[in-house]
Design a protein around this nucleic acid. Sequence first.
DNA 1: CTTATACATTTGTATATACAATTGTTGTAA
DNA 2: TTACAACAATTGTATATACAAATGTATAAG
Lengths: 148, 148
Amino acid sequence: MNVEQIIKTEKKIPLERRTIIHFMLVNNKINESISKALKPFDVSLQQFNVLRILRGQNEKPANLSTLNERMVTKMSNTTRLVDKLILKGFVDRIICPSNRRKVEISITTEGRNILKKIDSAMIKAEKSILENISKKELEQLNTLLNKF
Amino acid sequence: MNVEQIIKTEKKIPLERRTIIHFMLVNNKINESISKALKPFDVSLQQFNVLRILRGQNEKPANLSTLNERMVTKMSNTTRLVDKLILKGFVDRIICPSNRRKVEISITTEGRNILKKIDSAMIKAEKSILENISKKELEQLNTLLNKF
DNA sequence: CTTATACATTTGTATATACAATTGTTGTAA
DNA sequence: TTACAACAATTGTATATACAAATGTATAAG
């Protein structure tokens, strides 16, 4: 991936700016790959993220603020994100009996089933995204990302 | 930046997946920084990108498809993005005389002025994003990003 | 017990973006 | 020259997201 070539400029970009642009370009590519993998299941990246969080709770439901805390990309409207998942039948939402201000969101069997199907597509997407990166390079990348 | 801590999970995430999540987290942070830097100027990241492309043309106007080609994050509606910039008085748009299907978009003096102001805010944001990264690490990062 | 404050979520509204269909223009083959 | 395909941008529409205000509930102070 050559930055100058992709954004079609002949100018020399300072290393700092170039790195940030580079970063965004790679991120776009990653997002495209993953969105494409999710498309057949009619589930967005954010929706998938919520489903995965709920599965990770093993049976224990989560409330909205917990979901928000754990999402990779925080959203300013998790209510409506959950609305969509309810419409699709992948999650349930009930008012928390011990604190009626809160809400308890849990994944349904149907939600677990779709997640299971998505899992293999996701692993495939991840592999294809990282196909040119060795394990050593992955570790190196993680070390660098830690510095941000 | 510790991935597990940020998304608040105790589970071990496989290195591939962890790297991708890590990547997204850093990207979110970068976007936040830059958006915050742009906020006082009431210009979005994409709008800023278009302005910078137009400035890079030195005087030569660009048409829509050229803009789209050169944008870091491609959009499926550059027309309306340009509409916003016209409303703000930062760009002009005329129908291309030699080919009336095309359009010629150019940056106005006002656009150049705001860009000049944004420039220093942007350099500051870039510096703060990369404050913990040495030059050597930057180069290392670029090498790794090239592999995607 | 009443009132005020903090909390958790939802709703309203504006804006942004994606995608497909449409419009208007140009090039080209008969 | 006409008819048709290709091109470039715009428009319509649905969906996504951001942000602030509103709703309903719990907690705490007097």
